[in-house]
């Protein structure tokens, strides 16, 4: 048995993509923990935002309802929405996005399954993804379940722009996809061809499995590297930063997820206060 779980492997791969002195969003637990691992190891200058609200230089503590309280208790630096979007427009922002669908050209969808006008399933709306895919020099995506339903030939709706004819004409490299981390491997894009290419497959994952669980023909070279697994130190950082295991909610569903959810919601105030005692205004 490896001494790490799949969420810890995904988080560590995500962490390795982050560098420099930029704001890093913590809008999901996996994104927050990736930012925290990177800052704690190779990228000390990252300006990590609190989970899931917008205080800067916070130590992420993934919770369901306490993002702003984390900002307050830690005296993180409060940011406005203008600060966030100006950081996006000036490429001083990174965010790991968890799309419902991603395609071979790196287009992503969180808006709708089926046609937009007559949805089979109306999801949530494009949120802030179009901002990211027109401005950032890194387009970062992750999936906890790589399958033909999530990694598709063509997304039902382009919430975020991959390599499209419009990109070539209007955007150039700004906001192009650069990395997908899934439960099977790490993938990139060839900018010239605008197509997804494997960078490494996770330990124990075969090329055949990746082909089966990818919705389009993906060329996998015989000599594709194996992903370097998380170190004991990286795993320890994740465990310490997420004692309630909020990260596991992104991999669970149904009854298991509901039970975990209830336990986390019940305990998270106590966990916050133990780690970061409240300081009154």
């Amino acid at each position: 048995m490896p001494a790490y779980s799949i969420d810890e492997l995904i988080i560590t791969c995500m962490a390795r993509e982050l560098s420099g002195e930029v704001l890093v969003s913590s809008v999901t637990a996996l994104g927050a923990l990736a930012a925290h691992v990177a800052k704690s190891t190779h990228a000390p200058d990252l300006a990590v935002l609190s989970t899931p609200e917008s205080g800067m230089d916070a130590v992420p503590l993934p919770t369901l309802s306490l993002g702003q309280f984390l900002t307050d208790n830690q005296r993180a630096i409060p940011l406005t929405m203008e600060d966030i979007f100006d950081a996006i427009f000036t490429d001083r922002f990174r965010i790991w996005i968890n799309p419902a669908q991603i395609d071979q050209h790196g287009n992503v969808n969180i808006s709708v399954i089926g046609p937009w006008d007559h949805p089979k399933v109306a999801l949530v709306g494009s949120r802030g993804i179009p901002e990211d895919t027109s401005h950032l020099s890194q387009g970062l995506y992750y999936l906890t379940s790589h399958s033909p339903r999530t990694v598709v030939p063509k997304v039902d709706f382009i919430s975020g722009a991959g390599y499209t004819p419009e990109r070539a004409q209007w955007l150039g490299p700004y906001g192009a996809p650069t990395c997908l981390v899934s439960d099977l491997g790490v993938f990139g894009w060839d900018p010239a061809a605008g197509r997804m290419v494997p960078r490494s497959l996770h330990p124990g994952v075969s090329a055949d499995t990746v082909r089966e669980r990818t919705g389009f023909p993906l060329e996998i070279p015989a000599k594709v590297p194996v992903t370097i697994p998380p170190s004991a130190q990286e795993v320890a950082i994740i465990h310490a930063a997420d004692p309630l295991e909020v990260r596991k909610l992104e991999l669970l569903s149904g009854k298991e997820a509901a039970e975990k959810f209830a336990v986390i919601y019940e305990r998270e105030r106590q966990t916050l206060h133990a780690a970061w005692p409240r300081r009154r205004h």
Binding site: D117, T133, S134, R167
Partner: peptide, 13 residues
């Protein structure tokens, strides 16, 4: 004006 939305299907719908 903004670049936001270029290349996405928002401009179509």
């Amino acid at each position: 004006p903004t670049h936001t939305g270029l290349g996405t299907d928002l401009l179509r719908v």
